[in-house]
């Protein structure tokens, strides 16, 4: 996936990323700004067109599919965005906003949905996301941020998708509201058997909701594996640094670990060799020239590091 930026420079937002989303799992994508996690999320739904590689959804290669043939598949994959207000047209009632996908897409039987069908589905959706039925008659600005995010979720779920890509869905919410929405995501998954790709910068939120986690840095996946394994025993030095940097609501008795130095380099000119070598606390000579590939460790996770922090023998 590449973007063109000014003066003929090319920004590689994603560089040779491969990953599979398994049915029924919650795959968390974490990383700092500019790591390509949002771009990856959008590529999966082909909201941006990748400049190379393939996206296969349920056996169908959708990379080059014309929009007309993509539309029926779109019912199965939906997206929830960070900015709950910008995602909702402020001049339309919540009922109209949530009903829109129902009116645009044909019913499973083939024909258009009747008014009664739509009304019944709207009532069902409001129950599902925990909003009162009266919400349908009101406008987006009458709701708080958390309630608006519930509306967005209801709209994404209207067509009973199988895959939902959520891009920082709780980042703009206060902590007490964030917990409500994270719980809602988890409940919906259990009730509807959804598959999520959950894009977030907050490691704690990702750990709470994900079964697997992909950690990204400068357009590439550096570590991918079971959430508990990756976050409790990180193999990549970047994952470890990221975890250490999260301020926790606990007063520590011993001193804090020294923070990672420097800024994330510009994705327009990523460093040679391992992309993380400019900031890595355990960098060695080989890392400066030889880019590590994502490879499987014995415990089942993938890591892109020459010198991973966990033992390379069969894990415990």
């Amino acid at each position: 996936m590449t973007y063109r930026v000014g003066r003929g420079q090319v920004l590689r937002a994603l560089d040779g990323v491969s990953l599979a989303v398994r049915p029924g799992e919650v795959l968390g994508l974490v990383g700092e700004s500019g790591c390509g996690k949002s771009t990856l999320g959008r590529c999966l739904l082909r909201l941006v067109q990748p400049s190379g590689g393939r996206v296969v959804f349920d056996g169908t290669d959708i990379t080059m599919l014309p929009e007309r043939r993509l539309r029926p598949l779109r019912q199965d994959m939906q997206m929830v965005f960070q900015d709950s207000y910008a995602a909702l047209n402020p001049r339309r009632r919540v009922g109209d906003l949530v009903a829109e996908p129902l009116r645009v897409h044909p019913a499973p039987s083939g024909g258009r949905r009747s008014r009664g069908e739509i009304a019944a589905r709207l009532a069902e959706l409001m129950d599902l996301v925990g909003l009162p039925q009266t919400a349908l008659e009101r406008y987006p600005h009458e709701f708080s941020g958390g309630q608006r995010q519930r509306i967005n979720i209801a709209r994404a779920l209207a067509l009973s998708p199988r895959l939902v890509v959520a891009d920082e869905p709780v980042a703009a919410l206060d902590v007490s509201i964030q917990a409500q929405i994270v719980n809602l995501f988890m409940d919906l998954r259990d009730r509807l058997g959804l598959t999520y790709v959950f894009v977030a910068h907050d490691l704690a939120v990702v750990r709470q909701i994900s079964t697997r986690v992909a950690v990204m840095y400068l357009g590439a996946i550096v570590e991918l594996g079971e959430a508990d394994a990756v976050l409790h025993h990180p193999a990549h030095p970047y994952t470890a640094a990221l975890i250490a940097a999260v301020p926790e609501p606990v007063v520590r008795t011993q001193g804090l670990p020294p923070p990672l130095r420097g800024d994330v380099p510009s994705p327009i000119a990523p460093p040679p060799g391992c992309r993380f070598h400019t900031r890595c606390p355990v960098v060695r000579e080989r890392c400066r020239v030889d880019p590590p590939l994502l490879r499987a460790l014995p415990d089942g996770r993938d890591v892109a590091c020459h010198y991973p922090l966990v033992e390379e023998r069969a894990g415990p």
Partner: peptide, 22 residues
């Protein structure tokens, strides 16, 4: 407020204790 922050260590709660309303 402290309870509703998802923990980074230790066991994962099945549900996050959240504060109702706003």
């Amino acid at each position: 407020l402290l309870d509703s922050i998802p923990p980074l260590h230790g066991p994962r709660p099945a549900r996050l204790p959240s504060i109702p309303g706003s």
